[in-house]
Write a protein that binds this DNA or RNA. Structure first.
Lengths: 343, 343
DNA sequence: TTGTAAGCGTTATCAT
DNA sequence: ATGATAACGCTTACAA
C-alpha cells in the first residue's frame, strides 16, 4: 500500500495478462474473452485499481475535465452559475477546475495554465480580454463565453437583457413613474450595458426624452448603497428625487433600499426600486423586490452542455444560446406584495 | 501551431540544447551557464513554451493542484468558504478542483477520482463518510477537514460553536426570554450538533430545566420557513408560542422571520429570532438579524494554508485550528437596531 | 483474443 | 555545465 493506488502493471501481473488487456477491460472497449475479462475485473477490484488520470491524459491527450473562469466568486450570481456548471459537468463524469481572476495581473498566465489542464473552458463576463479568448481559439481550446458577447468562434450563452429591460421600464411607466434613474455601470459589464440600452430604448419607444446618465455603481450592495445614498441626499437637499431607481442587479437594489431606509424615504411610495437576477433574498426583504429573474444555474449548466458538445461531439460551428428571463413583480415597484410573475 | 503549445523538444531544438537543459532553465534549478540560459529563455519565450502540467505531474508525481469537496454549493456559506480557499490556493500558484457531492451515490468514486488529481483535499462537513477519510489517510493523501471533528490524522479547521452558542443563549436569557426553541438538525451536521450542545449547556449552566428538543429543519430558508410556520401556527392554536427561536443558521432564521410575518407575529416583540453565520443579508432584512459571525472566507483560506503546509513543508502531525466567532447583536433579539458587536 | 512496444511530455539520475 | 536516457502510468497501433 504505498502512496497512490495500484498501477496497471500490478493488475496485469495479478491477473496474469498484459497491461494492454487490463486497459481494455478497464475501459470496456477492445475485444476481450469473457473469462479473461472476469478474471481481470476481479484483479482490478481486489487491488482497488484506479487508472491515473494524469497518465491517461498524457497518453490519450484528453483531460476529462473542464474549467470555469470568473472574476470574483462574491455574491449569489457567480456561485449559482458555478453551481449549475459544476453539477452538469460532474454528472457527465468530468472534473471541474475553477479560477477566479480577482483582477489579478497574472490572470493571463493563470488562464493559460488552466487551459492546459482541461479539455475546454467557460469564461464569465469580462474576466479575460478578447485577445486572450482569440488566442485560446487559435490553440483550439473549446471556449464557451458566458454573459459576454461573441468573440471569435466561441459559443455564447446569455440571458436576455435588453428587451427585458424595456419590459421592466415600461412597467414602471405604467405605474406613472416617469423620472427614472439607472443605477449601475454600463462600462463595467456586458450585462449592465445591455440593461442600460434597454432602459434607453424604453424611453425612446415611448417618446420620452433621453433620461439622465447612469448613476455609476459596481455590482455590490455596498457600492449601490453609497451611490444611491449620495444621490438621494442631494435630492433631499433640493435637487429633487427621481420617481424610481432601476438597478443593474439585486445587490445594488438592496443597497438602494438600505439607503432609502437610512434617509427615511418610503419605498415604494416615495421611490420605486427594482433589481435584476432575483437572488433568493429579493423575496425576503421588505418591501419585497421587483426584479428580473434570470436562470442563473441554468446559465452554468447550459454552458457545460455546450462545452461537452464541442469536446465530445466535436462540434465546431459556434452556437449561441439566449435564455429568457421573467419579470418578477413584487412590492418595491408599487405592485401588491403578492405580485404575480410575467414572463 | 498545432493544438497545444510547443513541447520541450521543440524548444531544445530551437535553442540547440538538450531537453534536460531546457528543463533546467525552465524550472530555474539546475546549473546552467548564463549565456545558455539566456538563449534558452529566448527560445522559450519565442515559442511560447509552457510545460504540460500533465507530463510534469506524471514525472514529478506532484499536481500543483488541490481540491475541495462540499455537499452542495447552495447558499452563501459554502460559496464564501470556497472563495477563501480558491483565492489562497491560486495565490500559492496551485490549481483548484471542486467537487459537490450533492448526496450522490457515486460520491465515493468521485472523491477518489478527485484525490488522484490533486496533492491534497479539503473536505467540508459530512460530505464523505469517516471510512473514506480514513482511507485517504492511508493512501497518504493530505486531508484537511473543515467544519468537522477530527478523523484519523487529518487536520481540522473549525469555527468555535459551543461557547458561542452559550453566549448567544445567555444573551437571550438576559432579555428575559426563557422559553427558547432550537431550530435545526443536530444530527445533520457537526456544526448544528455543537450549537445545540451549547444551547443545552446554557440552560444547564443557568439552572434552567432541559429545553424542548430541536425543531428539525435542514439548513435552507425554505426548510426553516416550513418547520417554523408549522410550529408557530400550532402555537397560535393554543399550544403557546416560545419566547425565542435559536436557529442553526441565518437561512433558517430568514425562513423563520418570513413565517412569523406570514402569521402576523411581531419580531422581536412577540418572538425573538437569532441566526448563525452573519451572511450579508442578515444586516439587510427587517428586523435586522441577531446572529453569530463566523469568518467564512477565512475558514477556506486557512484550510488552504494547512493543506499547503502538509504538501510542501511535509508536515505530518495533525494541526487543529479553531477560529473565534463574534456575537452580532441586531434587532431580531430585542436589542436596538443599532446593536454593537461583542466578540 | 492477446501481447509487444512505441509514444505522450516531463523530471531526474547518471555520465561526460 | 551539459547531454543521454530511464522512468512516470497509461493508450493504442500493430503483430502474433
Amino acid at each position: 500500500m504505498p502512496k497512490g493506488s495500484a498501477t496497471i502493471y500490478q493488475v496485469a501481473q495479478h491477473a496474469g495478462v498484459s497491461i494492454a488487456t487490463v486497459s481494455r477491460v478497464q475501459r470496456g472497449n477492445g475485444p476481450v474473452a469473457a473469462d479473461t475479462r472476469a478474471r481481470v475485473a476481479r484483479s482490478i477490484k481486489s487491488l482497488d485499481y484506479r487508472p491515473s488520470p494524469n497518465a491517461r491524459s498524457l497518453a490519450a491527450s484528453r483531460h476529462d475535465a473542464s474549467g470555469i473562469v470568473f472574476p470574483d466568486l462574491s455574491g449569489p450570481y457567480y456561485s449559482e452559475v458555478i453551481y449549475g456548471f459544476e453539477r452538469e459537468t460532474v454528472e457527465a463524469r468530468n472534473s471541474v477546475l475553477i479560477l477566479g481572476t480577482h483582477g489579478r495581473e497574472r490572470a493571463d498566465d493563470l488562464v493559460h495554465d488552466l487551459a492546459a489542464r482541461v479539455d475546454g473552458l467557460v469564461i464569465m463576463g469580462r474576466t479575460v480580454p478578447d485577445r486572450l479568448v482569440a488566442e485560446l481559439g487559435r490553440m483550439k481550446v473549446p471556449v464557451v463565453l458566458l454573459a459576454r458577447p461573441a468573440v471569435d468562434g466561441a459559443d455564447t450563452v446569455l440571458a436576455e437583457n435588453r428587451n427585458s429591460a424595456v419590459d421592466l421600464v415600461r412597467h414602471l411607466f405604467g405605474h406613472g413613474l416617469d423620472d427614472l434613474l439607472f443605477v449601475g455601470d454600463p462600462d463595467a459589464s456586458p450585462d449592465a450595458a445591455e440593461r442600460w440600452a434597454g432602459f434607453l430604448d424604453a424611453h425612446r419607444l415611448t417618446g420620452r426624452p433621453r433620461p439622465a446618465p447612469p448613476l455609476v455603481s459596481d455590482f455590490t450592495e455596498g457600492g449601490g448603497h453609497a451611490a444611491v445614498r449620495g444621490r438621494l441626499s442631494a435630492g433631499l437637499d433640493g435637487r429633487g428625487l427621481p420617481a424610481g431607481l432601476v438597478c443593474a442587479n439585486d445587490e445594488i437594489a438592496l443597497g438602494a433600499l438600505r439607503a432609502a431606509r437610512d434617509l427615511g424615504i418610503q419605498v415604494p411610495d416615495q421611490l420605486a426600486i427594482t433589481g435584476w437576477d432575483d437572488i433568493p433574498v429579493a423575496a425576503l426583504v421588505s418591501p419585497t423586490l421587483t426584479t428580473v429573474r434570470q436562470p442563473m444555474r441554468e446559465l452554468g449548466s447550459i454552458a457545460a452542455v455546450l462545452l461537452a458538445e464541442r469536446i465530445s461531439a466535436g462540434r465546431v460551428e459556434p452556437r449561441h444560446v439566449l435564455l429568457p428571463t421573467s419579470l418578477v413583480l413584487r412590492a418595491s415597484c408599487g405592485c401588491q406584495a403578492l405580485g404575480g410573475e410575467i414572463s
